[in-house]
């Protein structure tokens, strides 16, 4: 049953993934002017430009270019970086790992924190705790990641010097796990807090909605302890929307991570994306966005599958 559903959803994701690849490919067509000319600089002769265009495959019809590009991408070939002349795939592999570390760190903060704050606020509705946290989350949800990151840098890296300002490892130090963790704290918190604030707000309203249901009233009338009522009867029913909310916020987190990596010089995909944009290294930009978008499609897929497993009604 579940396996069948997963298979169907996987097949259903194929057109979306194709669409994603098409958008990323077509985005390159938005580059103003002639890429080949731009890359070779103003001194290149018309002949060299033509030759280079041919080398890049730019003289082919657009659909053919897309199919070729997609075929190579499926085989792990995302082209070459114009600026470093390295294969984009090689360039991204290490960075993907670094980004994954940052994202894991942020998720471990954002999701539990958001859910816990939202739950407590809902249970203690209209208490000072609820009012203060809801005010704080409203503001936190409206702070851009880069502003939040710079704020943390001022406080914790410049003023009290608890954490390093930049990078993943201390170049003078021994390295190791502890060093990495120390470098991870500020970037992870920066990336995590705005999505955590949104998760908290949405979890709160979802829980309040669930707690107004008649079966909750019935559970109270049956004399079940309040802990059981809220943490088992209500939370269990609020879980599917909470999973959906958290999944959506992962997308937001991915966007925020681009800024975090830039601010903290974290050598991840977002940092590559930023440098790619600066040097107009289109293949790198394409590759980075494609990788992140595919990852996000898979996250959404996982959310659907988890929710199916959670919902007895959907199982029939």
């Amino acid at each position: 049953m579940l396996a069948g559903y997963v298979a169907r959803r996987l097949v259903g994701a194929i057109p979306v993934l194709l669409g994603v690849s098409l958008v990323v490919f077509l985005a390159m067509q938005l580059v103003p002017g002639d890429i080949a000319k731009a890359l070779l600089g103003p001194l290149a002769t018309q002949e060299t430009v033509e030759e280079f265009r041919h080398y890049l495959g730019l003289d082919r019809p657009l659909p053919e270019q897309y199919v070729n590009w997609l075929w190579r991408a499926l085989h792990g070939d995302l082209g070459r970086s114009f600026s470093s002349n390295m294969p984009v795939t090689d360039l991204l592999v290490d960075r993907l790992r670094n980004s994954a570390i940052l994202l894991a760190g942020s998720l471990v903060i954002a999701i539990p924190l958001g859910i816990a704050v939202g739950l407590i606020s809902a249970i203690r509705r209209d208490t000072p705790f609820d009012r203060v946290t809801m005010g704080a989350t409203l503001i936190a949800a409206n702070i851009p990641t880069f502003v939040f990151g710079l704020g943390l840098v001022i406080l914790f890296a410049v003023q009290v010097k608890w954490f390093p300002v930049q990078g993943m490892v201390d170049l003078r130090g021994e390295g190791g796990r502890f060093d990495l963790l120390k470098h991870l704290v500020l970037p992870a918190v920066t990336t995590a807090i705005p999505p955590a604030a949104i998760i908290a707000r949405m979890v709160r309203s979802t829980m309040l909605e669930t707690m107004s249901q008649e079966y909750i009233k019935a559970a109270r009338a049956n004399g079940l302890p309040e802990r059981t009522v809220t943490l088992r009867y209500a939370l269990r029913n609020a879980l599917p929307p909470i999973v959906t909310i958290s999944g959506l916020q992962i997308g937001f987190l991915l966007g925020g991570a681009v800024f975090t990596e830039y601010i903290f010089a974290w050598p991840g995909v977002g940092d590559a994306l930023y440098k790619g944009i600066l040097s107009r290294d289109i293949a790198v930009v394409q590759g980075a966005v494609l990788v992140v978008a595919v990852w996000f499609v898979l996250v959404n897929l996982a959310v659907d599958v988890i929710n199916l497993a959670l919902d007895p009604r959907a199982r029939g």
């Binding site: 249901q213 008649e214 079966y215 009233k217 019935a218 559970a219 109270r220 009338a221 049956n222 004399g223 079940l224 302890p225 309040e226 009867y233 269990r236 029913n237 959670l310 919902d311 007895p312 009604r313």
Partner: peptide
Amino acid sequence: MRQMRGKRIAMIFQNPMTSLNPAF
């Protein structure tokens, strides 16, 4: 009072569609 509810005084609600917990 909570010990009273369900044990000494029980309640039956109007809508059987909404007064059972759908997840259990």
